[in-house]
Nucleic acid binder design. Structure first.
Length: 207
DNA sequence: ATCAAGATTACCT
DNA sequence: GGTAATCTTGATA
């Protein structure tokens, strides 16, 4: 048996309620697991790229202008899943962090497929097999992640402390292997360096 | 009721 | 490197 898998434990509430930028960096390398009930299958992938959003000081955050029907889960305590729909096509998944009313969350931007590659491929490309090039294109973007996992409106507000969807612990990525840059695809607060990814990882959405 | 913008992606040159 | 596609949400009237 793989000795790594024995040690891995589900992340607890204390992890999610920490400080936004710390949690964002600590998310790198962690395993995202979704026991997809519709699919009847467990899907998992390693997080390799994230972006932090903080409505208190960050104009790009969905919570910058206060609570709405869409963003209200971001004002709950850390550990919930915030899913939103954008550009008429794509869902994006975030992990809510911090304490109640903080309005902070972390966007999942890039992952590396671990378990359920056939399902990821079926959801993304309509076929169960992938070549090496397609494999790198399964989860290297926020919309792609949701399509591959089958995450949509139905998963809005799910609790990561549940048994259906959660994170597994993994060794901390060393600071010198974490790249910090500005975020992608925003037109406000562009200067904030709140994107983090694992250096040299091929599933990062963009350099 | 109307309208513009959007934490993207795929496809084109 | 540039851009069309596509529709929900939130703001404004």
């Amino acid at each position: 048996m793989n000795p790594m898998s024995l040690k891995r434990q589900k992340l607890s509430i204390d992890f999610y309620t920490g400080e936004l930028l710390i949690v964002a960096q600590q998310l790198l390398g962690k395993m995202f697991v979704f026991n997809n009930k519709n699919l009847g299958r467990k899907l998992s992938a390693k997080i390799v790229e994230v972006e932090a959003y903080n409505g208190n000081i960050d104009e790009a955050a969905h919570t910058f202008n206060g609570k709405t029907e869409r963003n209200k889960i971001m004002f709950e305590r850390g550990g919930y899943l915030y899913v939103y729909f954008t550009y008429g096509k794509h869902f994006c998944a975030n992990i809510v962090t911090g304490k109640e009313e903080e309005g902070t969350a972390i966007l999942l931007r890039g992952m590396e497929a671990i378990d359920g590659i056939e399902s990821f491929s079926q959801n993304r490309f309509g076929k169960t097999s992938v070549d090496n090039k397609e494999k790198k294109n399964l989860l290297n973007g926020p919309g792609k992640i949701c399509q591959a996992f089958g995450i949509s409106k139905e998963q809005y507000g799910m609790d990561l402390l549940s048994d259906e969807i959660y994170l597994l612990d993994a060794p901390r990525i060393p600071k010198n292997k974490i790249v910090q840059t500005t975020r992608i695809g925003i037109k406000k607060s562009e200067e904030l360096p709140w994107r983090f990814y694992i250096e040299d990882n091929s599933n990062v959405s963009r350099k």
